[in-house]
Amino acid sequence: MRQRPVNLMDNPHADRVKRVAQLAGRSAVRNRRQQFLAEGPQSATEAIRAHLGFLKLSEPAQQMWPVGETVAEVYYTQRLIISHPDLFALVQQLPAHVFVAETSDQVLQAMSDAVVHQGIVAVVNMPPHSLQPSPGAELVAGIVRVQDPGNVGTIIRVADASGADYALATAGTVDIYNPKAVRSTAGSLFHLPVYTRVELGTFVASFQGRIFAADGYGTRVLDQTDSGMLNGPTAWLFGNEGQGLNDDELRLADQRVAVPLYGLAESLNVATAATICLYSSAMAQRRQDPSTS
């Protein structure tokens, strides 16, 4: 395979290094520049595959991650060439308008949000905020004022794994492009649409299916819920870690559903509850329509 020209960077104090590092900080910088970081082999691989058109994405996901426009810059260390040769081969296929550089460990560490850098950082172009969720989806993960980036990233990953059409995040949710949130998605961020700043009432009014609120105090318990309720178009709402969903948000749901606790645990982490709820719906939908398996 033909090697593209290599840019070398070994000064951790260079202006370009500082500009990349700023994207690991405040969300205001990411929003102003409409870019964020995909750190580590998993996230960078999926961002680059989306850029190269190697992912089989739905049309809405293609609008978020358009071929040839997703990745702006890539930085990697020499060790990546040995440890992840397949990823390095993808980097070599990036077109000339994407800036690519091999860096020293000190440079990549200066760019990275992680305690120890993971060998590669990609600067990714943020999707337009004007994109809106479709009302006709089969399965949706609603992230409502969730504050921990690890939880948000895990819910997005579960939405991807369970075959959800998309995830959405309301105002008050932590920035999904926070480096920790992006890493926690393990690349799933680039597999399905994730809509941000969604007004929950507007979404609920237009959604063509049932709205379920995951609520520990819900009168309906998940393991006693008839599969006929779960196998149709469904949007699940998952609330803030400490407060859950507030009264106004709960009133928007058709059903408040509790995940049963069989042991002595008082409650479940929101990302764990999201896993159980989304998979309950996904499996019910697939039992009804085996062709979706």
Rank of each mutant, 00 (worst) to 15 (best):
Q106R: 13
I156F: 10
A181I: 01
A171E: 11
R286Y: 01
L189D: 08
Q147R: 14
G263Y: 13
V259H: 00
V71A: 08
P60N: 08
T185H: 02
S58H: 02
N231E: 00
G218P: 09
R157T: 00
S43G: 05
G53V: 08
V182G: 01
V17D: 11
D113L: 06
G209F: 14
I211P: 05
I156G: 02
S281R: 08
N7P: 00
R220I: 04
A28H: 10
G40N: 09
G218K: 01
P41E: 09
L52T: 04
S206N: 14
S291E: 12
T173Y: 11
A235T: 02
V194Q: 03
T292P: 00
D10M: 14
Q78G: 03
G136T: 13
V115T: 14
L261A: 12
A167W: 03
A89M: 12
S112A: 15
D160C: 12
A213G: 02
E59G: 03
F190K: 02
V91T: 01
Q78K: 15
G163L: 04
M283L: 15
S267G: 10
E46N: 03
V100A: 06
R49Y: 01
G218Q: 07
V124T: 03
L200W: 10
M64Q: 15
L80G: 01
M64D: 00
S162P: 03
F88N: 12
R256S: 10
P85K: 05
Q106S: 13
C277Y: 08
H129Y: 08
A181Q: 06
G232D: 02
E59M: 13
A164P: 00
L8F: 11
G218Y: 09
P290E: 09
A235Y: 04
G136S: 14
P85H: 09
L192R: 10
L192E: 06
Q208L: 06
R79Y: 05
D254C: 05
G209T: 09
M64H: 15
V204E: 03
A24C: 09
V158W: 03
Q109D: 03
V158I: 14
S206H: 13
E199N: 12
I211N: 02
Q106N: 10
G119Y: 09
Q92H: 09
D289C: 05
F207Q: 05
M1D: 02
R183D: 13
K56E: 15
H117M: 01
A96R: 13
A167K: 02
L245C: 00
P290V: 12
R26Q: 13
A14W: 05
D160L: 07
S227N: 11
G187P: 06
A235W: 09
N7A: 07
L131F: 06
P233C: 11
L192G: 01
A271D: 07
S134H: 07
G142T: 09
T292F: 05
G216Y: 07
N246W: 10
G218H: 05
M283G: 03
A114W: 06
